[in-house]
Amino acid sequence: MSTLLTADMIRKWAPVLVLIGLVLLFTTINPHFFSLRNFARITISSTPALMVAVGVTFVILMGSIDLSMEGTIAVCAVLFALILNIFGGSISGIGWLAIPGALLAGAFLGAVNGIVHVQLKIPSFMASLSLGFIGIGLSLLITGGNRILIDDPVFRSLLTFRIMGFPLMVYAALLCLMVAWFIQDDTVIGRNFYAVGGGEDLARASGLNVGRLRIIGFTLAGIFYALGAIFAVARLGIAETETGRNFMFTSITSVVVGGTALRGGSGGVWSTLVGVLIVNVIGNGMVVTGLPDYFQDGVLGILVIFAVYLSTDRRSLSFIK
């Protein structure tokens, strides 16, 4: 019994140990890695990634997958910038309407994703992949391939205004993480995500409307992608189709590396925070230690394979498609 408990403990805390190990490793290679300025840099790059990864965490908890984030982020970022600029260009005026506007767009795209997946009975990876392509097409259609610049100082203060060395957006993201934690642990919807991920047949037999829950899960994910899009725009001051680039692979890697199993039912948003930090520490560490950043995709590829490998209980699985 006690050995079982420790094995479980190791599995639970392994991602945190990996994170600490990586920080120590990069610090020994280059002491400049361990500085407030560099940590601020890591958290800034983590902020949009965290929102997107938290969104897809809800979907993965149900045992589904969402590959549509690049398209959804592109659409939300572009719409956000467009609405902001139409309503005077400042978030302090009526331009604030851009925030609910982007969140609504994210919720809408997520809901469409969920409805296509549930009602047409298409596997979620393919439904969401298709909708991701459609999203990228939509944002290209809206922008005509151009960039939209945002130079509202109030909005950019998310990046420029710092408290204790960390910009405002980091605290805002932590607040959103708390909301996600609340949804996950203290709402019926959140508990039902675990129920469906842990055993869909059982959840269905208990009278749970699984289809409706899945649609809610995808909608929630869409809202968090929109938050990620807003932070990404705040970080760069630019909204374009490219804003969504690379989020799909990195966010899923983050979730899986953090310890949320792809089959669903275990893990959660705190695991995802650890996973996002691991991925961004690796990205930052590679730059600090002088490795070219394009190795990142390859390293993440190897990382995700091993994370899924370690998290899979291979005895319980017979066939993998």
Partner: peptide, 17 residues
């Protein structure tokens, strides 16, 4: 036992690098 959409995405990442 990694689902193929993840494994091929990962190998695609390696090929891209």
């Amino acid at each position: 036992k990694v689902p193929s959409f993840i494994s091929t995405l990962a190998v695609g990442g390696i090929a891209l690098s």
